[in-house]
Protein backbone atom coordinates (compact mmCIF):
# COMPACT_ATOMS: atom_id res chain seq x y z
CA UNK A 1 0.00 0.00 0.00
CA UNK A 2 1.11 3.50 -0.76
CA UNK A 3 0.25 4.63 2.74
CA UNK A 4 2.66 2.28 4.50
CA UNK A 5 5.36 3.27 2.04
CA UNK A 6 4.92 6.89 2.85
CA UNK A 7 4.79 6.12 6.54
CA UNK A 8 8.20 4.47 6.26
CA UNK A 9 9.51 7.40 4.30
CA UNK A 10 8.15 9.73 6.96
CA UNK A 11 10.37 8.18 9.58
CA UNK A 12 13.37 8.61 7.33
CA UNK A 13 12.87 12.15 6.09
CA UNK A 14 10.06 14.55 6.99
CA UNK A 15 10.65 16.79 3.96
CA UNK A 16 10.42 13.86 1.59
CA UNK A 17 7.11 12.95 3.20
CA UNK A 18 5.61 16.30 2.39
CA UNK A 19 6.81 15.91 -1.19
CA UNK A 20 5.21 12.48 -1.30
CA UNK A 21 1.90 13.74 -0.03
CA UNK A 22 1.87 16.98 -1.96
CA UNK A 23 0.51 15.57 -5.23
CA UNK A 24 -2.38 13.93 -3.43
CA UNK A 25 -3.00 17.05 -1.36
CA UNK A 26 -3.15 19.12 -4.54
CA UNK A 27 -5.60 16.73 -6.14
CA UNK A 28 -7.69 16.20 -3.01
CA UNK A 29 -9.82 19.38 -3.01
CA UNK A 30 -10.94 18.88 -6.61
CA UNK A 31 -11.64 15.21 -6.04
CA UNK A 32 -13.54 15.91 -2.83
CA UNK A 33 -15.65 18.54 -4.59
CA UNK A 34 -16.47 16.11 -7.39
CA UNK A 35 -17.27 13.31 -4.96
CA UNK A 36 -19.70 15.55 -3.11
CA UNK A 37 -21.19 17.65 -5.91
CA UNK A 38 -21.45 14.86 -8.43
CA UNK A 39 -21.64 11.47 -6.76
CA UNK A 40 -23.05 12.62 -3.44
CA UNK A 41 -25.69 14.65 -5.25
CA UNK A 42 -26.57 11.74 -7.52
CA UNK A 43 -27.21 9.62 -4.42
CA UNK A 44 -29.30 12.44 -2.97
CA UNK A 45 -31.42 12.64 -6.12
CA UNK A 46 -31.64 8.86 -6.27
CA UNK A 47 -32.97 8.76 -2.70
CA UNK A 48 -35.34 11.60 -3.52
CA UNK A 49 -36.76 9.64 -6.44
CA UNK A 50 -38.09 7.06 -3.97
CA UNK A 51 -39.88 9.65 -1.84
CA UNK A 52 -43.15 11.45 -2.24
CA UNK A 53 -41.44 14.86 -2.23
CA UNK A 54 -43.54 17.62 -3.74
CA UNK A 55 -42.37 21.22 -3.30
CA UNK A 56 -39.34 20.47 -1.11
CA UNK A 57 -37.18 17.41 -0.42
CA UNK A 58 -39.09 15.26 2.04
CA UNK A 59 -37.51 12.04 3.24
CA UNK A 60 -40.34 11.03 5.54
CA UNK A 61 -42.61 9.47 2.93
CA UNK A 62 -41.07 6.59 1.03
CA UNK A 63 -43.04 5.45 -1.97
CA UNK A 64 -40.77 2.81 -3.49
CA UNK A 65 -40.82 2.78 -7.27
CA UNK A 66 -44.08 4.63 -7.41
CA UNK A 67 -42.54 7.74 -9.02
CA UNK A 68 -41.01 5.63 -11.78
CA UNK A 69 -44.31 3.88 -12.40
CA UNK A 70 -46.12 7.20 -12.61
CA UNK A 71 -43.35 8.57 -14.81
CA UNK A 72 -43.65 5.87 -17.43
CA UNK A 73 -47.41 6.13 -17.38
CA UNK A 74 -47.35 9.86 -17.87
CA UNK A 75 -48.14 10.96 -21.45
CA UNK A 76 -45.76 13.93 -21.22
CA UNK A 77 -42.83 11.65 -20.39
CA UNK A 78 -43.70 9.36 -23.29
CA UNK A 79 -43.79 12.41 -25.59
CA UNK A 80 -40.43 13.48 -24.16
CA UNK A 81 -38.90 10.07 -24.85
CA UNK A 82 -40.27 9.97 -28.41
CA UNK A 83 -38.92 13.44 -29.05
CA UNK A 84 -35.57 12.44 -27.65
CA UNK A 85 -35.47 9.45 -30.01
CA UNK A 86 -36.36 11.56 -33.07
CA UNK A 87 -34.04 14.34 -32.05
CA UNK A 88 -31.00 12.25 -31.21
CA UNK A 89 -31.18 9.93 -34.22
CA UNK A 90 -31.48 12.79 -36.72
CA UNK A 91 -29.10 15.06 -34.87
CA UNK A 92 -26.33 12.51 -34.49
CA UNK A 93 -26.69 11.07 -37.98
CA UNK A 94 -26.91 14.35 -39.88
CA UNK A 95 -24.19 16.08 -37.84
CA UNK A 96 -21.80 13.16 -38.43
CA UNK A 97 -22.47 12.93 -42.16
CA UNK A 98 -22.33 16.68 -42.62
CA UNK A 99 -19.27 17.00 -40.41
CA UNK A 100 -17.36 14.29 -42.24
CA UNK A 101 -18.45 15.55 -45.65
CA UNK A 102 -17.43 19.12 -44.99
CA UNK A 103 -14.15 18.01 -43.44
CA UNK A 104 -13.29 15.95 -46.52
CA UNK A 105 -14.19 18.82 -48.85
CA UNK A 106 -12.19 21.22 -46.75
CA UNK A 107 -9.20 18.90 -46.78
CA UNK A 108 -8.67 19.21 -50.54
CA UNK A 109 -6.04 21.96 -50.34
CA UNK A 110 -8.74 24.58 -50.39
CA UNK A 111 -7.76 28.16 -51.00
CA UNK A 112 -9.35 30.26 -48.30
CA UNK A 113 -9.68 27.42 -45.81
CA UNK A 114 -8.68 29.89 -43.13
CA UNK A 115 -11.81 31.91 -43.92
CA UNK A 116 -14.25 29.06 -44.42
CA UNK A 117 -13.36 27.00 -41.36
CA UNK A 118 -14.18 29.69 -38.79
CA UNK A 119 -17.47 30.34 -40.58
CA UNK A 120 -18.41 26.68 -40.12
CA UNK A 121 -17.24 26.64 -36.54
CA UNK A 122 -18.60 29.88 -35.12
CA UNK A 123 -22.15 28.66 -34.29
CA UNK A 124 -20.55 26.47 -31.68
CA UNK A 125 -19.43 29.62 -29.89
CA UNK A 126 -23.02 30.74 -29.49
CA UNK A 127 -25.32 30.01 -26.61
CA UNK A 128 -28.24 27.71 -27.44
CA UNK A 129 -30.42 30.61 -26.32
CA UNK A 130 -28.96 32.84 -29.03
CA UNK A 131 -29.30 30.07 -31.60
CA UNK A 132 -32.85 29.56 -30.42
CA UNK A 133 -33.73 33.24 -30.82
CA UNK A 134 -32.27 33.34 -34.32
CA UNK A 135 -34.06 30.21 -35.53
CA UNK A 136 -37.30 30.90 -33.68
CA UNK A 137 -37.81 34.10 -35.66
CA UNK A 138 -36.24 32.79 -38.85
CA UNK A 139 -38.73 29.90 -38.91
CA UNK A 140 -41.63 32.01 -37.65
CA UNK A 141 -44.28 32.03 -40.40
CA UNK A 142 -45.20 35.66 -39.70
CA UNK A 143 -41.83 37.32 -40.23
CA UNK A 144 -39.42 34.54 -41.22
CA UNK A 145 -38.78 32.19 -44.10
CA UNK A 146 -42.43 31.79 -45.13
CA UNK A 147 -42.87 35.54 -45.25
CA UNK A 148 -39.66 35.94 -47.26
CA UNK A 149 -40.87 33.48 -49.87
CA UNK A 150 -44.22 35.28 -50.08
CA UNK A 151 -42.40 38.57 -50.56
CA UNK A 152 -40.40 37.02 -53.37
CA UNK A 153 -43.64 36.05 -55.08
CA UNK A 154 -43.95 32.38 -54.07
CA UNK A 155 -47.39 32.91 -52.56
CA UNK A 156 -48.22 29.24 -51.96
CA UNK A 157 -45.04 28.56 -50.00
CA UNK A 158 -45.85 27.33 -46.53
CA UNK A 159 -43.41 26.48 -43.76
CA UNK A 160 -44.99 26.58 -40.33
CA UNK A 161 -43.45 23.52 -38.68
CA UNK A 162 -42.59 25.50 -35.57
CA UNK A 163 -46.30 26.09 -35.00
CA UNK A 164 -47.37 22.51 -35.76
CA UNK A 165 -47.42 19.94 -32.98
CA UNK A 166 -46.25 17.11 -35.20
CA UNK A 167 -43.40 18.94 -36.89
CA UNK A 168 -42.12 21.36 -34.26
CA UNK A 169 -39.49 18.93 -32.94
CA UNK A 170 -37.88 18.91 -36.40
CA UNK A 171 -37.31 22.66 -36.27
CA UNK A 172 -35.31 22.07 -33.11
CA UNK A 173 -33.31 19.42 -34.95
CA UNK A 174 -32.59 21.94 -37.73
CA UNK A 175 -31.31 24.54 -35.29
CA UNK A 176 -29.28 22.03 -33.31
CA UNK A 177 -27.59 20.70 -36.44
CA UNK A 178 -26.75 24.23 -37.49
CA UNK A 179 -25.16 24.78 -34.11
CA UNK A 180 -23.11 21.57 -33.77
CA UNK A 181 -22.17 20.33 -37.23
CA UNK A 182 -19.23 22.73 -37.53
CA UNK A 183 -17.76 21.33 -34.37
CA UNK A 184 -18.08 17.80 -35.69
CA UNK A 185 -16.45 19.00 -38.90
CA UNK A 186 -13.51 20.29 -36.84
CA UNK A 187 -13.18 16.93 -35.08
CA UNK A 188 -13.11 15.08 -38.40
CA UNK A 189 -10.73 17.59 -39.94
CA UNK A 190 -8.36 17.05 -37.03
CA UNK A 191 -8.71 13.32 -37.60
CA UNK A 192 -8.07 13.61 -41.36
CA UNK A 193 -4.97 15.71 -40.78
CA UNK A 194 -3.67 13.01 -38.48
CA UNK A 195 -3.75 10.26 -41.14
CA UNK A 196 -0.33 9.02 -42.14
CA UNK A 197 0.59 10.37 -45.58
CA UNK A 198 2.66 7.32 -46.45
CA UNK A 199 -0.37 5.03 -46.46
CA UNK A 200 -2.17 7.25 -48.92
CA UNK A 201 0.86 7.72 -51.15
CA UNK A 202 1.24 3.96 -51.33
CA UNK A 203 -2.42 3.58 -52.33
CA UNK A 204 -2.03 6.29 -54.97
CA UNK A 205 0.98 4.53 -56.42
CA UNK A 206 -1.12 1.38 -56.59
CA UNK A 207 -3.50 3.39 -58.74
CA UNK A 208 -6.38 3.73 -56.31
CA UNK A 209 -8.77 6.56 -57.12
CA UNK A 210 -9.46 9.35 -54.66
CA UNK A 211 -12.93 7.98 -53.95
CA UNK A 212 -11.55 4.52 -53.27
CA UNK A 213 -8.85 5.93 -51.00
CA UNK A 214 -11.46 7.72 -48.95
CA UNK A 215 -13.91 4.85 -48.90
CA UNK A 216 -11.48 2.03 -48.21
CA UNK A 217 -8.69 3.68 -46.26
CA UNK A 218 -9.40 7.09 -44.81
CA UNK A 219 -13.00 6.81 -43.63
CA UNK A 220 -12.37 3.49 -41.85
CA UNK A 221 -9.45 5.21 -40.11
CA UNK A 222 -11.92 7.79 -38.78
CA UNK A 223 -13.55 5.19 -36.54
CA UNK A 224 -12.31 6.78 -33.30
CA UNK A 225 -13.55 10.19 -34.45
CA UNK A 226 -16.98 8.74 -35.25
CA UNK A 227 -17.02 7.28 -31.78
CA UNK A 228 -16.00 10.55 -30.10
CA UNK A 229 -18.51 12.49 -32.16
CA UNK A 230 -21.23 10.00 -31.30
CA UNK A 231 -20.51 10.25 -27.60
CA UNK A 232 -20.35 14.05 -27.61
CA UNK A 233 -23.52 14.42 -29.69
CA UNK A 234 -25.50 11.76 -27.84
CA UNK A 235 -24.89 13.32 -24.48
CA UNK A 236 -25.68 16.79 -25.85
CA UNK A 237 -28.93 15.37 -27.23
CA UNK A 238 -29.99 13.81 -23.94
CA UNK A 239 -29.19 17.06 -22.14
CA UNK A 240 -30.97 19.23 -24.73
CA UNK A 241 -32.84 21.85 -22.80
CA UNK A 242 -31.79 25.45 -23.52
CA UNK A 243 -32.54 25.28 -27.22
CA UNK A 244 -36.02 23.92 -26.63
CA UNK A 245 -36.74 26.57 -24.02
CA UNK A 246 -35.62 29.34 -26.33
CA UNK A 247 -37.39 28.07 -29.45
CA UNK A 248 -40.69 26.62 -28.30
CA UNK A 249 -40.56 26.26 -24.49
CA UNK A 250 -41.97 22.78 -25.06
CA UNK A 251 -44.83 23.93 -27.24
CA UNK A 252 -47.07 23.94 -29.08
CA UNK A 253 -48.81 22.24 -26.17
CA UNK A 254 -46.36 19.58 -25.00
CA UNK A 255 -45.20 18.74 -28.52
CA UNK A 256 -41.51 19.52 -28.02
CA UNK A 257 -40.97 18.36 -24.47
CA UNK A 258 -37.68 16.58 -23.91
CA UNK A 259 -36.64 14.62 -20.81
CA UNK A 260 -34.61 17.58 -19.55
CA UNK A 261 -37.58 19.90 -19.99
CA UNK A 262 -39.83 17.37 -18.28
CA UNK A 263 -37.55 17.26 -15.26
CA UNK A 264 -37.49 21.03 -15.00
CA UNK A 265 -41.22 21.52 -15.45
CA UNK A 266 -42.24 18.78 -13.04
CA UNK A 267 -39.74 19.64 -10.32
CA UNK A 268 -39.97 23.41 -10.33
CA UNK A 269 -43.20 24.13 -12.18
CA UNK A 270 -45.57 21.46 -10.93
CA UNK A 271 -43.97 20.76 -7.55
CA UNK A 272 -43.57 17.05 -8.30
CA UNK A 273 -40.02 16.80 -7.00
CA UNK A 274 -40.14 13.03 -6.54
CA UNK A 275 -41.12 12.47 -10.15
CA UNK A 276 -38.66 15.11 -11.32
CA UNK A 277 -35.89 13.26 -9.49
CA UNK A 278 -36.89 9.95 -11.05
CA UNK A 279 -36.83 11.50 -14.53
CA UNK A 280 -33.33 12.84 -13.84
CA UNK A 281 -32.22 9.36 -12.77
CA UNK A 282 -33.53 7.90 -16.03
CA UNK A 283 -31.65 10.59 -17.97
CA UNK A 284 -28.48 9.70 -16.14
CA UNK A 285 -28.94 6.00 -16.82
CA UNK A 286 -29.36 6.77 -20.53
CA UNK A 287 -26.21 8.88 -20.66
CA UNK A 288 -24.11 6.53 -18.57
CA UNK A 289 -25.09 3.54 -20.67
CA UNK A 290 -23.41 5.31 -23.59
CA UNK A 291 -20.56 7.04 -21.78
CA UNK A 292 -19.37 4.39 -19.34
CA UNK A 293 -18.50 1.72 -21.94
CA UNK A 294 -16.80 4.42 -24.01
CA UNK A 295 -14.69 5.73 -21.16
CA UNK A 296 -13.94 2.20 -20.01
CA UNK A 297 -12.56 1.26 -23.40
CA UNK A 298 -10.63 4.54 -23.62
CA UNK A 299 -9.02 4.18 -20.21
CA UNK A 300 -8.55 0.44 -20.65
CA UNK A 301 -6.93 1.07 -24.01
CA UNK A 302 -4.60 3.56 -22.36
CA UNK A 303 -3.47 0.89 -19.92
CA UNK A 304 -2.66 -1.62 -22.62
CA UNK A 305 -0.37 0.83 -24.34
Amino acid sequence: MAITDTAKAAAANPRATLQDWLPKLVLAPSFALILLFVYGFILFTLALSFTGSKLLPDFSTWVGFNNYVRLFNHPNWIVALKNLAIFSILYIFICSVLGLGLAILLDQKIRGEGVIRPIYLYPMALSFIVTGVAWKWFLDPGIGLENVMHQWGWESFSFRWIKEGKMAIYTIVIAAIWQSSGFVMAMFLAGLRGVDNEVIKAAQIDGASTVTIYRRIIIPLMRPVFLSAFVVLAHLAIKSYDLVVAMTDGGPGTATWTPALFMQKFTFGRNEMGMGASSAIIMMIMIFSIIVPYLYSELGGGKKQ
Partner: peptide, 26 residues
Protein backbone atom coordinates in the same frame (compact mmCIF):
# COMPACT_ATOMS: atom_id res chain seq x y z
CA UNK B 1 -0.30 6.76 -7.56
CA UNK B 2 -2.28 3.65 -6.88
CA UNK B 3 -5.86 4.19 -7.94
CA UNK B 4 -5.15 7.33 -9.98
CA UNK B 5 -7.04 5.83 -12.89
CA UNK B 6 -10.13 5.46 -10.74
CA UNK B 7 -9.82 9.05 -9.54
CA UNK B 8 -9.47 10.23 -13.12
CA UNK B 9 -12.29 8.02 -14.31
CA UNK B 10 -14.63 9.45 -11.70
CA UNK B 11 -13.63 13.01 -12.60
CA UNK B 12 -14.07 12.27 -16.29
CA UNK B 13 -17.48 10.69 -15.85
CA UNK B 14 -18.51 13.84 -13.99
CA UNK B 15 -18.19 15.76 -17.29
CA UNK B 16 -21.08 13.91 -18.78
CA UNK B 17 -23.74 13.82 -16.09
CA UNK B 18 -27.04 15.43 -17.02
CA UNK B 19 -27.04 18.48 -14.79
CA UNK B 20 -30.71 17.92 -14.00
CA UNK B 21 -29.55 15.26 -11.60
CA UNK B 22 -27.67 17.72 -9.40
CA UNK B 23 -30.10 20.65 -9.53
CA UNK B 24 -32.12 19.86 -6.42
CA UNK B 25 -29.19 19.08 -4.07
CA UNK B 26 -27.17 21.99 -5.53
Amino acid sequence: FKGDNIVFGLMLLACFIPFQIVLIPS
